[in-house]
Write a protein that binds this DNA or RNA. Structure first.
Lengths: 327, 327
DNA sequence: TTGTATGCGTTATCAT
DNA sequence: ATGATAACGCATACAA
């Protein structure tokens, strides 16, 4: 925090008092054209910029939003972060970024830190804590992909529908043995609904299904390799997989190693539709999640909450199946 | 900014004054065990957390670092952001995230915003402005991959060496016509040194070389598609490419469409070694850039600068060639 | 139309 | 060992 001129200096140089300068800054009330010019010139000459910390203290409002994600290194969260930042900035808010790395203590620490820093609200996209730990936070909050309370708004995609579309598609393409990778099923996240749909549809179709629980570490890609290899070792006859986009890349690799062709021998449907989905060879058929719209919705909802306006609690965004080359 | 108890409330409840509570908070001087207990209990009961905004105002120090990147949606910057945040947080600093999206005005706006918010320093990884615009910012700053002044520290990887390793490798593998994708060569970024090495080595080997300038929009992946297609249209006999990891994925796709096999017909070396490099089929041979170490270095340097300690201006991190399946 | 004085929550300097 | 008070930079009642 280098030494910078303050409102007082501007006032002195412009031959007025701080009040007038402040009114100029906040465009309140009227003032003579002459003083306006004077103030503008003084600011220019001094290179004055208002101190937002002082303003925040006075206004009891920081115009900062805390964003808690597992890690920005995961493309899904990277894309989401980028969009959230964009919409927040457009609305005059900045983003304080927190990577929980799926660590309970870190997440707790971040929440406390955000309270100390008086952020106006939190967008929570990392979920390692039990729901009751989020209660009585005394802050505006919106979650992504998880419901943590009846009054806390959440944004998610229509995971059941996505699971349905993906599974049906695989079935329609003639698959007879399907695999699904789930995250932690114990945490009651909305993405688990994909699994429900997967199970329901495979059962209805009388097709064998395999559900594999992956670990929590979304940022540890290396675990996927062993999981995928195990899958094909135990079930060499799997001919279809419904997994996240990143996992799909791993499935592609395993298939390549095992001499299985995609889509001829194994068909793969992803979920997310992050950029790399269309960058793989073959191009990945996947369930498109409207990441940018979800980000916008999360920001809109949070800002409404902050403003004390009523908000919709459930915000389930539509998904669609993007058919490409992997099926 | 919800209503929260302040130091006054704690003091009242503990039967002391704000001074004592403040001393407790900052662990300065001694106090009786009894009052210490009282204060602890009062804080506990009130759920008190100190207001960092007020602290920042008084201390003239925000403990916040501004990070300007093109976009977190690009995996390279996503990974870098994740690491930077990690090291900053460990040192007691938070990250205010700014995605410039390669927009001059946005970048300028962000710099001003960071000044207003009194961040203690800036890590600049987006470069759309001319170097003189960064002068007299009056803030601690460290750049990634670009030198903007003799006294402003920068962190980069050994791009020339990387370019050398990649080109030599391609040559050693027998390639006779090499393509290279460069970013904007006019901006004098360190990554341009890859191009220099590429040109020098191909020339020395008497091998034909093609340099293609891509646009500025690192986040607009779609442009790559047309560029790659054009390349193979004009030069069907290209048998080697040295490009960024993301571009490599596009090259793979083009090859697949054109029936060219990687690595038999076309060999590809990437640069960055982001996660997806090892997720492609075939696995990408690439120049490993130590992203995490670079992030750590950038944070360390910036904090030293903030502390007024002398810092090394040039910080060029070593690279290595990771041979995988694409060559 | 412009100025004076007070408070936002905290810390540090002086007292006691 | 603890208390009173003046900053930190700004914005707003209230005066003038």
């Amino acid at each position: 925090m280098a030494h910078t001129p303050k409102i007082n200096d501007v006032a002195a140089r412009a031959g007025v008092t701080v009040t007038t300068v402040s009114r100029f800054l906040n465009k309140r009330g009227y003032m003579s054209e002459a003083t306006r010019k004077n103030i503008e010139r003084a600011m220019e000459e001094l290179g004055y910029v208002p101190n937002e910390i002082a303003r925040s203290l006075y206004r009891q409002k920081s115009n900062i939003i805390g964003l808690i994600i597992p890690t920005a290194s995961h493309p899904f969260f990277g894309e989401m972060t980028s969009s959230i930042e964009k919409y927040a900035y457009e609305a005059g808010y900045r983003i304080l970024l927190c990577n929980s790395r799926m660590d309970k203590d870190k997440e707790r620490g971040y929440i406390e830190m955000l309270r100390r820093n008086k952020v106006d609200g939190i967008i929570m996209a990392s979920h390692t804590l039990e729901v009751d730990e989020y209660r009585n936070l005394g802050m505006s909050i919106v979650t992504m992909d998880r419901k943590i309370g009846d009054n806390i708004p959440y944004v998610t995609s229509d995971n059941y529908r996505g699971g349905y579309l993906a599974t049906r598609h695989l079935l329609d393409r003639g698959c007879r043995k399907l695999a699904y990778f789930s995250g932690n099923l114990s945490l009651d996240l909305f993405p688990n609904k994909r699994c429900e749909a997967f199970l329901a549809e495979t059962k209805a179709a009388g097709v064998e299904s395999i559900v594999i629980q992956t670990g929590l570490d979304v940022f540890d890609f290396s675990q996927y390799k062993t999981i995928v290899n195990e899958l094909f070792e135990k079930h060499p006859d799997v001919d279809g997989a419904f997994v996240s986009d990143i996992e799909a890349a791993h499935v592609f690799q395993a298939c390549a190693r095992l001499g299985k062709r995609v889509p001829q021998d194994v068909k793969v449907v992803g979920y997310d539709d992050i950029s790399i989905a269309s960058l793989l060879v073959p191009c990945l058929t996947t369930v498109h999640q409207p990441i940018d719209e979800m980000a916008k919705k999360a920001v809109d909802i949070l800002l409404a909450e902050i403003a004390g306006a009523p908000v919709q609690i459930a915000n389930v965004m539509p998904v669609s199946l993007v058919e490409r080359e992997s099926t």
